[in-house]
């Protein structure tokens, strides 16, 4: 019988190591999910690539970029930003499934670092975002998309994309803990999809009627899409408004604001579990 009872670590450094180790254990659980069900992972990647191909080849012929330029060059950054926002569904499903199945409670009854669940979720979701981005970049390159401002610009663009994904993590955790039902992802999709289209991801907001155009311009997804178009040196839609003139600033501010609101709410969500 293993009756080995360990005591929690005492020094701050030992506690940090312990928290990182637990976080990695929780991350590895997701990696094991992928290994157990590679098809699910591949299907997710294919879906993003399909959206890109569909708009690039099916609708692309009918689209034009206001400032001139190739629609596919305009489209790829849009879809990159779009998939970061849609990542909220991945986080939501993982968090609400654990909460509904009692796995969250099991974790809470274990002597593990309380931060490990969030750290593990965060690492796994960012890894999955990186995989999605990689798949889209490859597909984009095959479609003729390129970055024109060198590696530094491209890096800054990917950093902004992952920053947006990180902001979506907090929203996903918060909603997952509040709703605690993986089936509610349907409802989430109904909310997220229009937000995806009501942006500059696929078309220039200038083509939309007045107030819709304003919503699309201020949409966090548009901020990141417009910012990374600039950083990649891809054609933008060239609006005259404040958000279209300060896209990089807005692509930093929006995720910061979302994090500032939903990170505390997510942490409170965990606290509420013991109420």
């Amino acid at each position: 019988m293993t009756a080995l009872i360990t005591a929690p670590p005492r020094t701050p450094l030992a506690r940090l190591r312990w928290a990182l180790a637990d976080g990695w254990t929780v991350t590895r659980r997701d990696l094991t999910h992928w290994r157990n069900q590679p098809l699910q992972l591949v299907a997710g990647l294919l879906f993003s690539v399909m959206v890109l191909l569909m708009f690039g080849f099916l609708f692309g012929g009918a689209m034009f970029v206001p400032g001139g330029g190739d629609y596919r060059e305009f489209l790829v950054p849009g879809v990159l930003a779009l998939t970061m926002v849609f990542g909220v569904e991945t986080t939501f499903t993982a968090i609400s499934t654990d909460a509904a199945r009692g796995v969250t409670d099991r974790f809470r009854s274990l002597p593990m670092a309380p931060s490990a669940v969030v750290l593990g979720r965060c690492t796994a979701d960012l890894l999955s975002a990186v995989l999605t981005l990689a798949a889209l970049v490859l597909a984009g390159l095959a479609m003729g998309w390129q970055w024109h401002n060198g590696v530094a610009g491209a890096f800054a663009a990917f950093a902004l994309l992952l920053f947006l994904r990180l902001a979506m993590l907090w929203l996903g955790i918060y909603l997952g803990l509040v709703l605690r039902s993986p089936e509610a992802v349907m409802a989430l999709q109904i909310l997220v999809w229009p937000l995806g289209f009501l942006s500059s991801a696929f078309v220039a907001p200038a083509t939309m009627p007045g107030w819709l155009a304003a919503v699309a311009e201020w949409n966090p997804l548009s901020a990141t899409a417009t910012a990374i178009r600039e950083l990649f040196g891809n054609p933008g839609w060239g609006g005259q408004s404040w958000p279209s003139e300060h896209p990089v600033l807005l692509a930093v501010l929006w995720p910061l604001a979302l994090t500032a609101v939903f990170c505390p709410l997510a942490i409170r969500g965990y606290r509420e579990l013991s109420r």
Binding site: L4, T25, N36, R101, G102, S109, L110
Partner: peptide, 28 residues
């Protein structure tokens, strides 16, 4: 140790993977 009223295990993992995961979280 707690065994709750409803089974609280990860559906996507095998039985062995579940036990190893929880074992690691007990710092084995």
């Amino acid at each position: 140790g707690l065994v709750g009223q409803h089974a609280a295990v990860d559906e996507m993992l095998s039985g062995r993977q579940n036990l190893e995961l929880f074992g690691r979280l007990y710092h084995l």
